[in-house]
Each structure stands twice: as C-alpha cells, then as structure tokens.
Design a protein around this nucleic acid. Structure first.
Lengths: 210, 210
DNA sequence: ATCGTAATGCGACAAGCGTTGCGTTTGCTG
DNA sequence: CAGCAAACGCAACGCTTGTCGCATTACGAT
C-alpha cells in the first residue's frame, strides 16, 4: 500500500547507510528541535529554519534527509510511539475504563503537554506521511489497551467475543471529538460519562461481534 | 515581519459599511472559489492566488478583507452552516441513531464530498478564527440533532433527563475519531455498531444526568 | 593509518507569498 | 444628479521558502 500519489517517496533516506556517530547525533538533535518547536509554536508556527537554528543542523540537510516539515514531524511521531506506556490495571473494567478516559483528559489539560499530540494531528491533515505515522501510532496504542478487555473477559465482566478494538476506541472517541472537531472543553465529568456509557454498552452486549 | 502574537481580529472587516452590489458579488464569488478550491486541492493545497484567479477578485482585496487563508475558510464555513438540514425522523430512536450514523459515513465515503469538511477541520488547527467558526457550526448542528432525543423521550424510549447533547455526540464520535485522528476507514457496519452502542447505553440510563 | 564516499556545511539563487502606495471604480447619501 | 468615501484593481517591492552546485567533514572498511 505504497500509494503515495504524487512524487512517491523520492528520498533515498540518507542516514541509513551510515547510522553511526554524527548521523545519529544530528537525527537526535533534529528530533528534539522539532518537539520543542511544536510545543512552543504548534504545527502552524513550526518552520524549517527554526529547526535548523535550534538543532545546529543546516537547512539543506533537513530538506535532503526529511524532505520538509512533513517528514520531520512524521519522524518525531515515530519516536513518540517508542515509549513504554501501558494501560491502567485497577482490578475492574469500570476502573480501567475510567482511568483510561481520565488519562486523556489529563494529557490535554495542560496546554504544553497537549501541543505535541495536537500538532501531530494537524500535520496528518497536510501530509500523507504524517497521516500514516499517526495511524501506526494509534494502532499500536490501542492494541496495548486491548489488554484491559482481555483481563475483563478473564474476570467475566465482558463476553469472550467482545470487539476490544471498538471498545477501547469508544472510550476516548467522545473526548477526541470535542478536542479536535467540535473544539469544546473537556473535563473529568465527561471522562466519567464516557466510561460509564461504554461500560453500560459492554454489559448490554453491544460490543459483542455476534 | 509584523507582530506574530495573538493579533486577534485586527481587521475592520471591510464590506460591512457597504453591503450592496459589487461588495456582495465579490463575497459570493470568493466563497465559491474557496469551496471549489478546497474540493479540488484540500486545505494544504489551497492558495490565495488560486482563489484570486477563480473568483476574479484581486489578491490584494482578499488579504484586505479576509486577512489571509484563515479568514477565507472561516467565512466559507459560516456559509456552510446556513443550510436547512434536519435530522432524520424514522419513528424510533434506534432508526434515527442509525440513520444519523449512516449519514456521516455517506458524507465521507465520497472523497469529493469529504474534502470541504475535512479542510475545515484542518483549518481549525491553524487558525483560531476557523476554530471558532467550526465550534459554532457543530454546536448548531448538534442542537438540531437533539430533536431526535426529544421525540424519543416523548415515545418513552429515553429518560426525561437524558443528556441529549452528549448522546448525539456519542453517535458520531467513533466515526469522527477514525476519520480524523486514527485515520482508519469507516463503513456502514461501524455506523450500525456505534448506533447500537449508544442505544444500549441510553436504555441502561448511562446518559441520564445526575 | 589510509582511503573512498556518505553525509553535512555553505553560499547563492529562483520562485512564491504577503504587503504597500497609489490610482480607479462603485456604492451610498443628500 | 452631484460628491464623498468605501471598496477594489494594479504594479512593484521585500521577505521567506525551497533548491542547487560545490567544498568540507567524518564514518566505515581495508
């Protein structure tokens, strides 16, 4: 599915043949600069020259290796996915779902913390490459969350044929909708409501894949 | 470079003192050009010069009256909200919710139809003005949807203290999440699932306030 | 240690974007 | 039907963005 449309990936991806010393340093410096730039000015305010100055890497190199802002953000997004986050384990499905929802609220309550994730989504609207990276990120993230459902099934709190992927997405969906689409504020009460809705639907078998 | 800070709305909004003839014509022509531009190239590909050429309005005028792409898109978004859309009325809550969800899927199934709404959301990440217009649009849109809940309450399908605003948002939230955040495909089956989940939660009283 | 070459630095350049000053047209008012 | 000001068109300018050719650095292998 390399449907890249226009100019495919026309970049030989420099930095792969020689992954050592300097190349790795530049890459790390650039990633840091991109993340700090996103936090400071958001995606619309992020410019190549800002990254160049704050990383000490020349403008030309940025264009050559990453092909522009799209690639820079996509690369930073790949890095963001390489963390050790695991879903909460409170001992009950209700507790886990509530904790998950609250994590979303907390993550976007502080504006400085919300800047980078928001910027990634903004970038996904402008760049196919960033969109692919974002899909991969969330796919991986939600996969981890499915452990919550597996435990619930073990405890008999959910049917064995529960659609775990849909369930975990349903928890954060109302929050994400307000954050990125309708632009409404979110709070802890909304997180509780979202978790309660999903829990009730689960108990009613609405997530059972039949 | 001028003040890059929050220059609020620094535009005296020309075209308000003289709403007649030419001014109105240019405004309409510009709006059409913006919408066709969004459909053809999406928000990232939309350029001022494109709007100038396809509307017959000079570049300078566009900058003066709308202040740039942000304002142009925000203005077009205001227009988009002035339609006569009403939510479905199938005679049952389940039917209405399913119809609502399917409308979302249908609206974004065709790429040409999806371009403009997607572009509006993309614009909201880059422009406070577009974000405000988007919030107003969805606020109005969801308000109309609450009629569905009112009818359901009349029929005894939902509690009288049901949180209608949260309920109608919950229907489309999983679809919007996949469209704009996780970038996963959506289909009719997903719409049915979303409606079923919300219906089950409603029957369980999960949307009852307090 | 030495060499080949990948990777980066450097300066200059073309193209596009947004702004500005000024002249012209057009809509409102009396 | 005049007269004024608002809105617009026009051309030119400065700034930013992205690219190119060439020189330099330093990784990796012999």
């Amino acid at each position: 599915m390399t449907n890249e449309g226009v100019h495919a990936d026309e970049h030989p991806v420099p930095g792969t043949r020689r992954p050592g010393g300097r190349t790795a340093r530049t890459r790390a410096a650039v990633r840091d600069a991109v993340l700090s730039g996103l936090s400071d000015h958001g995606y619309p305010g992020l410019t190549i020259e800002y990254v160049a100055e704050h990383s000490g890497v020349h403008k030309t190199t940025l264009y050559r290796r990453w092909g522009g802002l799209e690639g820079l953000v996509a690369d930073a997004l790949d890095l963001a996915g390489e963390d050790t986050w695991t879903p909460p384990d409170t001992g009950s499905l209700e507790g886990d779902l509530r904790a998950l929802a609250h994590e979303v609220v907390d993550a976007f309550a502080d504006e400085s913390k919300a800047a980078a994730p928001t910027a990634f989504i903004a970038a996904s609207f402008q760049s196919q490459r960033a969109a692919d990276a974002l899909r991969a990120f969330y796919s991986e993230r939600f996969s981890r969350c499915e452990a919550v459902i597996a435990r619930a099934v073990e405890r008999g709190e959910a049917d064995r044929d529960t659609d775990a992927a849909a369930l975990v997405r349903a928890v954060s969906a109302p929050l994400m909708l307000r954050l990125f689409v309708t632009r409404e504020p979110i709070d802890a009460a909304l997180a509780d409501q979202s978790a309660a809705v999903v829990l009730a639907a689960t108990r009613a078998g609405a997530f059972s894949s039949r």
